[in-house]
């Protein structure tokens, strides 16, 4: 097997003490769309920087003294070892505090945690990535990994929905992704003057996808849960089986190591058994409210 991405890493979760936070400094802040920025974080300790590895789909716990700790997916190319990007939307107290910080400020980071996208399963098969809103952030490392080893995979389609044209995340990267062999389809819920692209929910893109071979496709999905539910329904209607569908659950969590029970979903803990789950494993619990 030729790849360090499709068969990655010893288990990164075992590599570090999960309770120990490392200090990271903000190297750069890139405003993406309204209320969302990408933060490049650099480990202060050279030894930690050198040993830190993550697999696409995993997340870190970011600790802001005086504000709290939050789970954030890693949105970087897994080959990037200098810094580690996190794309973050302002939601409440901690994320607002982070938005007030500037380049050079430091915070704590624990991780990486959780399961990753099953890239090894994709070898020789088509891959459809269905995502909406900020859900593109945890998919981005998978895109980087798939494109890095483009020839190992069949057709690669990204189906991405956003609220409006000005909230399409990472829009500056679509041309590069397309040139490297990812077919990028975008759609928006609300059109704007001059927008010539698709209007309508992202599930419609899956409905319309041509050259689709349901038996030889792996689907990754990340976005609001309602969107994921309807994406799965559409995929099943188009002939895929539950074992070919993977979703990332990003419900609220606290400890990140399966102890506090905050993110328990049936027998699983999102933090340690997820966030990436094969659909058949999580299906019975998808409708559980209020976690």
């Amino acid at each position: 097997m030729s790849s360090s991405y499709v068969a990655p890493l010893p288990d990164p979760r075992l590599a570090t003490d999960p309770w120990r936070a490392s200090t990271v400094a903000i190297r750069a802040v890139r405003p993406e769309v309204e209320g969302v920025s990408t933060y490049d974080l650099a480990f202060q300790d050279e030894a930690v920087r050198a040993s830190y590895r993550f697999a696409p789909g995993q997340f870190n716990m970011l600790y802001l003294p005086g504000a709290g700790e939050i789970a954030i997916s890693i949105s970087d190319d897994p080959r990037n070892t200098a810094t580690c990007a996190h794309t973050i939307r302002v939601a409440g107290n901690v994320t607002r505090t982070l938005a007030g910080m500037k380049v050079g400020d430091t915070l704590g980071l624990r991780g990486p945690f959780g399961t990753s996208w099953p890239l090894a399963e994709c070898i020789g098969r088509d891959v459809v990535l269905v995502t909406g809103g900020i859900g593109l952030a945890p998919i981005r490392p998978a895109i980087c990994a798939l494109l890095h080893q483009r020839r190992q995979f069949g057709r690669l389609n990204l189906l991405y929905g956003a609220r409006s044209p000005d909230t399409l995340l990472y829009a500056r990267e679509y041309d590069d992704w397309s040139e490297r062999g990812l077919i990028v389809h975008t759609t928006v819920d609300r059109s704007a003057l001059g927008w010539m692209g698709n209007v309508g929910v992202v599930t419609l893109l899956l409905e319309r996808l041509r050259s689709f071979d349901p038996r030889n496709t792996v689907l990754f999905c990340c976005g609001p849960e309602v969107m994921m539910r309807f994406t799965v329904l559409t995929a099943l209607n188009r002939g895929m089986s539950p074992e070919q569908i993977w979703i990332s659950m990003e419900r609220n969590m606290q400890c990140a190591v399966g102890l506090c029970g905050h993110c328990q979903l049936g027998p699983d803990f999102i933090c340690k058994d997820g966030p990436v789950f094969r659909y058949d494993r999580i299906a019975p619990f998808l409708d559980v409210e209020g976690l």
Binding site: E34, G133, A162, R163, D189, V201, E207
Partner: peptide, 17 residues
């Protein structure tokens, strides 16, 4: 199908907050 899609559109799932 169009009705379901319209409902999802109405839910405004990607709203900022």
């Amino acid at each position: 199908k169009r009705l379901v899609a319209t409902r999802l559109q109405l839910l405004d799932l990607f709203a900022a907050s």
